[in-house]
Design a protein around this nucleic acid. Sequence first.
DNA 1: GGCGCGGGTTAAAACGTTTCACCCCCCCGT
DNA 2: ACGGGGGGGTGAAACGTTTTAACCCGCGCC
Lengths: 346, 346
Amino acid sequence: MVAPVSIRDVATRAKVSVGTVSNVLNRPEVVAPATRDRVMGAIEELGFVRNDAARQLRSGTPRAIGLVVLDVGNPFFTDVARGVEDTASEAGHAVILCNSDESSQREARHVELLAEQRVHGVLITPVDTDLAAVRRLRDRGMSVVLLDHPTTDPDLCAVAVDDRAGGELAVTHLLAEGYERIVMVNGPSRIHQARQRHDGAVDAVRKAGRDEGVLEELEVPALNVASGQRAAEQLLARSTRPDAVFCANDLLALGVLQVLVRAGVRVPEDIAIVGYDDIDFAAAAAVPLTSVRQPRQLIGRTAAELVIAETMTPAEHEHRHVLFAPELVVRESSRRVQRPRRRGRG
Amino acid sequence: MVAPVSIRDVATRAKVSVGTVSNVLNRPEVVAPATRDRVMGAIEELGFVRNDAARQLRSGTPRAIGLVVLDVGNPFFTDVARGVEDTASEAGHAVILCNSDESSQREARHVELLAEQRVHGVLITPVDTDLAAVRRLRDRGMSVVLLDHPTTDPDLCAVAVDDRAGGELAVTHLLAEGYERIVMVNGPSRIHQARQRHDGAVDAVRKAGRDEGVLEELEVPALNVASGQRAAEQLLARSTRPDAVFCANDLLALGVLQVLVRAGVRVPEDIAIVGYDDIDFAAAAAVPLTSVRQPRQLIGRTAAELVIAETMTPAEHEHRHVLFAPELVVRESSRRVQRPRRRGRG
DNA sequence: GGCGCGGGTTAAAACGTTTCACCCCCCCGT
DNA sequence: ACGGGGGGGTGAAACGTTTTAACCCGCGCC
C-alpha cells in the first residue's frame, strides 16, 4: 500500500547520514539532542519501522526464540508458554510457537524452520527420548533448553519437574488415606514423563512396605480427556473395581471423573482420583481434583531466562539443570471420608 | 560452537558459484543433475542452513505470520491457534504467537514487534473496538485478518462467527425448553463478543414474544472460571433463583456449574446451564454442558489461508468477511426433564 | 562456415541495517 | 598562533542471500 520506508529515507528527510539515524535508534545518548529530535520527528512523520531482518543479518543477534511443545491444546503447555512469552517479551524477544503434536516429523519440520530463522534459542519438549534433533540444533550453534525433559547431558540446559517424586507423592498420599487397590492410568511408555511418574508410584508402594499388587498400571494411547473416558469405562466393566485411580495427567483424570460421576460412582467414597499438573480446570471440576502441581509458568519463565542468559554471555555460561519439586494439592477427590466399605480388606 | 556456514562456503566446496547454489535451493530444475548432486552433497557435509534473514532481506518475502490472541489460556484460542499453525506450517510459514492478555499496551508492543519482523501478515483479535492499532499495521502495508471480530471495513479481511445468532440460538433453546427466569452471565461490555451475544439473547426473547423480564444480564469482570464461580455464588444467595443460566463462554459456565453442583443444586432440574464455545472440557464436565459451538480450528485455518492468499496475490485479492454460523450442541445441562416445578409459573 | 539459439553457469548488484574508521570543527592549554 | 582533544557526525564496508544480465559453448541450420 505504502512504499516501504527505510533508514535511508529517514536520513535524507532529517538531513543527516544513515549512520546517525542508526545511532539514534541504538545509542541515543551519543547524538546531540537537537539532531536526535529531528531524526525522531522524521521517523514519526514517515512511519518508519526498523527492518529486523536487515538488523539481524548485520548484527547477528536475532530477536526471537523458538518454543516447541507437544500439544498446544493442553493447558499445561499453554501455561508454560505464557511464562515463556512473558519473560521473552520483557526482553524484547518474539516467541515462535510450534506444536509438534507428538509427531517427530512435525517436530523436525519445525526445528528446521527455527534453524533457518536463526532464532536466539530453542525451548523444546522433545517427542523422542533420543535427542537427535536437539543435538543437531546445538551443533548448529543455537542454545537449547530442554523443557520438562530431564537429561544428564552436561552440554544442555534443562528445566523440569521431578516427575518421579510427583508420582511418589500422589501414591503415598493415596496409601496414607487407606486406598489399597490403585490403578495408575498412564500414558504410552515412550513418553518420558509417563515412565517417571509410574516409577515414582512404584517407589511409593515399596517405601510404604506394601505388596506391589496394590498398584496396577493401565496404559492408554494418549494423554487426553477422551483416553481418560475410555479408561474409566474399562474400569467400570471390571468385576472388582479399584478404590483409587491415579492419572498421569489432569486431562485423563477429568475424563475418568466424568465417566465415573455419570455412572453414579461416588468420588471419592467409591473411587478416589488423583490427577497430575493441577491445571485450572482441576480445581473447578465437578469434584475438585487432587492433583500434583507443577510450577507451570515458572518453568516457562526459567527456561526463557536460561536461554536468553546463555545467548547474552555464551562464554561464561554454565549449563544448568533446574529441577523443580512438585507439590501435592489435596482436594476433595481423594479425601478419605467415613463410609461403609463395601468390601472390608484393610 | 561451529563456525556459521554460508552459501559461499557451500559454493567453494562444490566448486560452483554462489548463484548456482542459490539456484539449487530455489529452482532445482534449472541446474544440471550432476552439479545439483554435487551441491547437495556439499550442503549435507557442511550442515548448511539457509539464513532466512538474508533471504527475506533480499527477496522481500517473509516466512512468518503473526497471531495475536486475547488469552492463550483459553482453549478457544488455542484451538484457533492450532488451525492457524496447521495451515501456516503446510505453507512453510512459522507462526509467531502473541498473547495480548486483553491489554492494549501489550497488544501494541506485540504489534510493533511483528511489524519489525516484517511478517507476512497478522491475524489478530483486537482488544479494543477502535481498530487504531490494526489500521496502523495496514498502513504499513501488512495484510491483516481480524479474528473473531466482525467489521464493516471493506479494506480488511475478517473471520468471525455470528455471535448474535449464537446468543439467539442459546436463549431460544432455553425458552423452548420452558425456562423462564434466565440470567445471562456476561463478560464486560467493552468486549465485542459479549455485547453481541447479549443482543442475540434479547432477540430471542423478543422473537418468542416474551416479556423482556425473563432475561436478566449479570456482568462479570472477566471471561474465566473464577468469575463464573463468583457469579454462581451471587445467584445462590438470591431469594429467587433463576431457573437457567446462559454464560458468555464455557469457562464461565464451568465455574458456574461447579459451584452449583457443589451446593447441591441439580443441573438441569433446578437450574439449567448453557455455555458458549463448546470447548473440549464442556462435553467432559460433571454434567455435560450444552454449548454454542464455534468451528474453532476452521476459524484459524480460514484466517491463515486468507492472509497467505492475500500476500501471494496482493493485486487481485478481494478482502473477504467470512462469517461462520454457530451451532447449538444440546447436552444434558439444559435438557428439560420431568420434575416437580417448585413454583409453577408457566 | 558463420549465426542464432539455448542450456548451464557466473559475476555482480541489491536488499536495509550496523559498525568502524575517519573527518571536521571548535575549544582549550601553552 | 598552534597543536591536541573530543564531541558530533559521516561514509563505506559488511552481513548472506536472491536475482538479473551477461557469458560460454556446443549444436543445428541456412
